[in-house]
Design a protein around this nucleic acid. Structure first.
Lengths: 195, 195
DNA sequence: ATTATCTATAGATCTATAGATAATGC
DNA sequence: ATTATCTATAGATCTATAGATAATGC
């Protein structure tokens, strides 16, 4: 039973980790404080020594989920094509509790507190910057606008692939949008192939 | 107070209408059966003469919301460019209770019953077919794949525009994705302008 | 006789707080 | 002395059902 300051910090982190996964899986209102605490190996009474309210946990969990994703994207220095294929993969689709929180939570975020929306927006900007930096050399036009198109297609496509119950259709959505995006941003000579 | 069969049908429709708006605004778990009934001018006790369970209301409300949208899209026979501009408009973004349910509910649908997911998928196919039929003449390649790219970008972009609290960024998301999509599918001579 | 609606409520669940316990840290 | 955790619970809310009432429809 944790009592030192160091143990409290670990406990706090464990609560946020559980929440960041379960909120993504079940939605921001899909799990109770008591269930989060239980899964973190604690009981509900201790919660309010860590957070002023449930809404505060939401803010921290959203931020932690996005930061973790951006961190792993930064280390996986890669090409745009590989980024697209990884994002729009069946493996990513099936990570309903550890997948991209920008996609898994976009609808919930629109309905939640301003603090959580601010945290979300800040991390969205990070992800967009990263995507801009992955654009092939020689890409013409507004890089920010192109990054927004790609990320919007990401969020919509992976959301749809999770919404439809038919596995065939789900895969078709992912592969169709993936190949369309790859064709739009070829690594070299953007003018040669248009279809 | 309605008792005849005709009145019951009207009442049923009124409950579904309220639910189809509030579920879109607040999420599929965001409003109680009692509150839906109250807003329809009824009390909670009568609910289970109309629906076997709350989940059944969800199925009907999702279907009704999508059918209503597809109906209005069918009558508004228009060009792809105008469709894009209308979908990715601030007016549509602000219709949080009457906007496109495919976008407003995509995350919730992934977490709900198979029956609701089936109803959603069926209507998604309708919307995709409609989009395919709006493609400019002479568009090359896989029309279904291009419709999936557009609808994914729709869902992601309008979702993001609702999630971010900064109105400037929200507008930027809509206009950037809108102009990118319009540039991708020009009405004539698709080969001339690539940027 | 049937049934669409109402009022009332059972039973489950949720957020937040109260008070007890036991270890930390001055 | 402080506080991180625990057990217990208050008060609110939610789905679903029970039973009463009053109009429909055979």
């Amino acid at each position: 039973m944790g009592y030192s300051q160091a143990e409290k910090a670990e406990t706090h982190q464990r609560i946020v980790d559980v929440a960041s996964r379960r909120f993504r899986e079940l939605g921001l209102e899909g799990i109770s404080v008591a269930d989060v605490m239980n899964e973190a190996g604690l009981t509900v009474g201790g919660f309010y020594k860590h957070f002023a309210s449930r809404d505060d946990l939401v803010v921290e969990a959203v931020a932690a989920a996005c930061d973790e994703m951006n961190q792993s994207l930064l280390t996986a220095q890669t090409t745009l094509k590989k980024s697209i294929q990884t994002y729009l993969s069946e493996a990513h689709r099936d990570k309903v509790d550890t997948g991209c929180p920008l996609a898994l939570l976009v609808n919930d975020i629109a309905r939640t507190t301003d603090d959580a929306r601010e945290a979300y927006t800040q991390r969205l900007e990070n992800s967009l910057s990263l995507l801009e930096s992955q654009m092939p050399k020689g890409t013409e036009g507004n890089l920010r606008a192109k990054a927004l198109l790609i990320y919007s297609a990401y969020i919509g496509a992976i959301g749809l692939s999770r919404a439809v119950p038919d596995p065939k259709l789900s895969s078709q959505i992912l592969s169709a949008v993936s190949s369309q995006l790859i064709a739009l941003f070829p690594a070299k000579k953007p003018q040669t192939a248009a279809a």
